[in-house]
Amino acid sequence: MILFDYTRAATVADALATGRQPGAAFLAAGTNLVDLMKGGVTNPERIIDITRLPGLSGIEAKPDGSLRIGALARNSDVADDPHVAKTYPMVAEALLAGASAQLRNAATVGGNLMQRTRCQYFTDAVSPCNKRQPGSGCAALGHATRIHAVQGWSEQCIATHPSDFCVPLAALDASVEIEGQGGTRSVKLTEFHLLPGDHPERETVLEPGELITALTLPAEAARFAGNARYLKVRDRTSYAFAVVSAAAAMILDGGKIGQARLAFGGLALKPWRVTEAEASLAGKAPSPEAYAEAARIALDGAKPTGEANAFKIELARRVAVRALTLAAAGTPARLPALPASPFGIV
């Protein structure tokens, strides 16, 4: 058997102290980490179980109008929270579109941010992969599949980030609360994940031993509640990663779009928010032309990594247009039976 140390952290300080040791990994639900360990993709020497850390699973509406979600809150608990569903509907919709009910009941929101790519060449534990083994090359580059990136990739890595949850978080300006030896810091979710560049082995801004303790949605995010949708195009109705997804939201102001938000999943190694596309919508009346223009801008610079994923660029434009159309039509009073599905319109 693979031998590793297992310790259960009693306090955050405790976790931070042990987490700094070489070869350490934090364990929450383990829905991704344990699979990767079984597959020999990652071999931590020290597992620090953080599931018993007190006070990290709350979902709390703050007096300033913001929402703080503890890092250990379960995906299903967040999705089912009435305040979340009402105030940040596309966050709930994205959560419910992810994985399966069983996984959502176990998985934590902090873990969701930390999940690794599903690139087949990363998970097979043998192919050259710069992320798994820096300097070994990228086996995916010569045989990209539909899950590979069309935005923000480099010659070193063409993987994508698989999260649904992170897409509306990026769109809504969420920030990540991080504890470290030096204290607490806050990083915008859009800046939390790193593009591959020359160092695909670095996936987030977390320094060794740092721990995510919470996510915060700013008060401003609640203003989008009436016109916000997450749309996920996928190869089957459940338990499938997005081929392309989009979170679209707007604040309508006297028949015009006051502000818009637009972010994509399935395109890049991080949730792909395009503020230029958002800006193009501001001040315009909601219209197919305006959405098409935003979609065009959003996919500016997109480049396929192979024949198999070239379609994703046009698909992403259409997903953006549809998501914006749905958002403009208004958030449904209740989440659809098939959340985020094109067939789930209410």
Binding site: V233, T237, R318
Partner: peptide
């Protein structure tokens, strides 16, 4: 079957 005319998803 139902097919999304823009997104191609089939149900």
């Amino acid at each position: 079957v139902k097919v999304d005319p823009d997104l191609g998803q089939v149900r």
